[in-house]
Design a protein around this nucleic acid. Structure first.
Lengths: 235, 235
DNA sequence: ACCTGAACACCGTTCAAGT
DNA sequence: ACCTGAACACCGTTCAAGT
């Protein structure tokens, strides 16, 4: 008996589910930033009172946990092609694309204290790629600490250069000369970027290049240690 | 005329100043964590209404800015001894000691969008140590991106192993065997740590070792690139 | 000059009451 | 079973009023 009493299209809104709540949170954060995501605002977004959300999620922490899991789920599955370095590199760059799609995600991830099973699964599969590539358990362990958040596709940026250059050229030159007196070394970087800036619009660092530079320096260092470990047998 | 009209000890409390507000915030965060630091609570701590604080600081962001500056001020000044690697390494480990004194500081630092002049001065002096050691401006720039938050003495930890092992040995063994099925690679790390654990109390990673491992891998990689850059003249 | 009370516009969350 | 109104205990911040 698979006949069901259809509710005669009385459902004007899709019923609230945990998944709908989480996706609404991601949408809202993508549009207005993570600080806009409050329980009250989230309810509003779903055409419901804030209190109704508690029928589908435990609390706000649970929302953020779920959101992180959905985003980690966007990372490509582990590949088995190439050596460990190419495989791990590709996976991390896929994680980075997910983070670029949701620029607020890194701060939410770093605010989680305990890793979720989904996160554990991701980490474990990256670790598995290393072990398959000949890492010892010890070296894989150190690799995780060295990669840090980079394994999830983001790095801790300590400067924000986004609104650095929205000034007139004269004003920029003045600011630069003042900066040079106080911070000569940092200023040298800024000036270098301005010179190379014929190509790039807006100025600022080439974040993708810098991410890959740091990633490759790390992976190359790990590979060197792996080769040292295996007592130079082959090659 | 250095005689002053002393207020006849009517001052039962030291007058509120920006510095006292900031130090009270640090004390409170050290004792109860950063989430305890609200304007209302901070006023309470100083025996004053929250609104009074606004006579000495602009707002809460200003408090956090000031707190970061005080903590960055705890880092040892730049040394001129040894080569660039030893000098930078020593400075970063000094920064790390400051962070260990205030475990909440890293999250406050990463929440600042624009670096303060004090922070810029620190960064600039680290950059200066690299330039003095023979780095090109380009390589110094990449070095900052590679070090990331490590230049300030902390790394982004994605696991929290603090409350991992507060179980009975039997329970631990059971949990481990369940974990092994789901996350074999990660479990291998945990088991390795348990074995080496005769020495260390409490278990968990040796954070200082891992920090230095990652730092040295990075510094060594940078040194290699620096030597490659200078066309192998003096070896 | 500095501190305060009252108020505003927000939070997350609980719980009894509705349908 | 799900949604809601009212309430609680918090936030940061402003501003007129006090001394």
């Amino acid at each position: 008996m698979t006949t069901r009493s259809e509710p005669a299209t009385t459902e004007r809104r899709a019923p609230l589910t945990r998944d709908r709540v989480l996706r609404a949170a991601i949408d809202l954060a993508d549009r207005e930033g993570i600080e806009a995501v409050s329980m009250r605002r989230l309810g509003q977004e779903l055409g419901v009172e804030a209190m109704s959300l508690y029928n589908h999620v435990a609390n706000k922490e649970d929302v953020l946990d779920g959101v992180v899991d959905l985003i980690v789920g966007e990372i490509d599955p582990a590949s088995v092609e190439g050596d460990w370095k190419a495989a791990v590199r590709g996976r991390i760059l896929s994680a980075r694309r997910a983070m670029l799609r949701h620029p607020w995600a890194s701060t939410v991830i770093t605010s989680r204290i305990q890793p979720s099973p989904v996160m554990m699964k991701y980490m474990d599969s990256v670790g598995g790629m290393m072990l398959a590539g000949g890492f010892s358990v010890d070296l894989m362990h150190h690799a995780f600490h060295t990669l840090g958040s980079r394994v999830l596709g983001f790095s801790q940026e300590l400067f924000d250069d986004s609104s650095e250059m929205d000034q007139s050229p004269e004003m920029q030159a003045l600011l630069l000369s003042q900066m040079r007196a106080e911070y000569p070394s940092i200023t040298a970087i800024v000036e270098q970027i301005s010179h190379d800036d014929a190509t790039v619009v807006g100025s600022g660092c080439d974040d993708q290049f810098e991410f890959e530079f740091a990633l490759d320096l790390t992976l190359d260092g790990l590979e060197r240690l792996r080769l040292g470990e295996t007592s130079a047998a082959t090659t």
